[in-house]
Design a protein around this nucleic acid. Structure first.
Lengths: 207, 207
DNA sequence: CCGCATCCCCAAAGATACTG
DNA sequence: CAGTATCTTTGGGGATGCGG
């Protein structure tokens, strides 16, 4: 654990817990679900094995992650977010919404597997209208229904969107439908896009 | 600038920009308004002068902060957030809301001056009901109206809350009014408390 | 193989002194 | 006041080793 900022401040305290290098990216991965040590190592290119071990130990010590060993058939152990750890999703979402605006168009070769599920969860899920959505982007598939994000497809979708990562980028930022194929209820999808690109409202809604 | 995570991912990119030690705390301070180098240094106990200079240079380079020299009478220069930098408020708010739950009751001697304004902006301002609120906590004063936070008092308040930092803590987390003095429209204040302690809704509102 | 612990090296942080 | 220069200390990156 690195040195504390030693301030009585919720932000400084939060950064004491998750502000070190790699920590929030580990949490980002674990938002996909429980994962083994080696899976994490594979999905975080560049992280040293010692760093990963140290971060997991810290995260466990402060109640963000739990280590479980799976029952006998599979003798491996997995890391899993606690409920408190899972709530870091709001932090990661805020970071994603802020960061995406200076990120520029995608370079497909730098996209990690599973990126689409994150993208849907971060940008489309919050405030999504009721409906069943399937995204097929550059070989990845993810779905959204009831504000829940799933890796993989979904039965009886209301809308299916198929395009490339680049197509999705320009759709999102400029509403350009070049190279984007929408199957099903296009108007419903437009409403989804409206909520996704609306300015973020943090906090509760005014009464 | 430290090493990039080198992933095409909005979160990783955001952390490339503001993920280094001290960076988000500098932004937190600048949310109070433009500030001189020495002010920042004073308000961030423990930061080295070289680190502060380096961070400010990085933040300037990536369009989060701008350096201005004030017009002749005052020959000093100030650092100021750009609009893009100001939007990091949503990230800091998410961190604050997450972090406060594991922070514990306040230790008054570790509170930095200006903390109350941040606290009001982060916890009370989002979604606040219409009204004029004044907070007087442990010698600090801050106000809230139209969702705008101000350092200092306000004319014609609807409600004035006076207590200690500890009193505010237990009021917030346990609705305990011990040692809390409410002047004015108490019911309005209760509504403010309701919105402040409601679970955070990130993203736009469901249609 | 999986899950780390150890070691080495370098880059970044911390502390302090000093300067335009 | 607003930093730069310098030195020491700490932490990260990468390779390797090793028990289960």
């Amino acid at each position: 654990m690195s040195k504390s900022y030693d301030q009585y401040c919720p932000m400084a305290h939060a950064l004491d817990l998750v502000g070190e290098r790699w920590t929030l990216l580990i949490v980002r991965e674990l938002l996909h679900g429980p994962m083994r040590y080696t899976d994490l190592s594979d999905r975080l290119p560049g992280i040293g094995t010692n760093i990963l071990a140290a971060r997991l130990k810290d995260l466990e010590a402060c109640g963000i992650v739990e280590k479980h060993r799976l029952p006998p058939p599979a003798a491996s152990q997995v890391y899993e977010l606690t409920p408190y750890g899972h709530e870091l999703k709001s932090v990661l979402r805020a970071l994603a919404v802020w960061g995406v605006r200076s990120l520029g168009p995608p370079e497909p070769e730098r996209l990690a597997t599973g990126w689409l599920e994150s993208a849907v969860a971060m940008f489309f899920a919050p405030g999504a209208p009721v409906g069943r959505f399937v995204f097929r982007i550059d070989g990845e598939v993810a779905s959204l229904t009831n504000g829940e994000t799933l890796a993989g497809p979904l039965d009886d979708p209301d809308v299916t969107v198929e395009t490339t990562a680049t197509g999705l980028y320009y759709l999102f930022f400029e509403r350009r439908y070049d190279g984007v194929e929408i199957d099903g209820d296009r108007e419903l999808f437009e409403r989804l896009l409206d909520t996704a690109t609306a300015p973020v409202v943090s906090g509760a809604v005014a009464v």
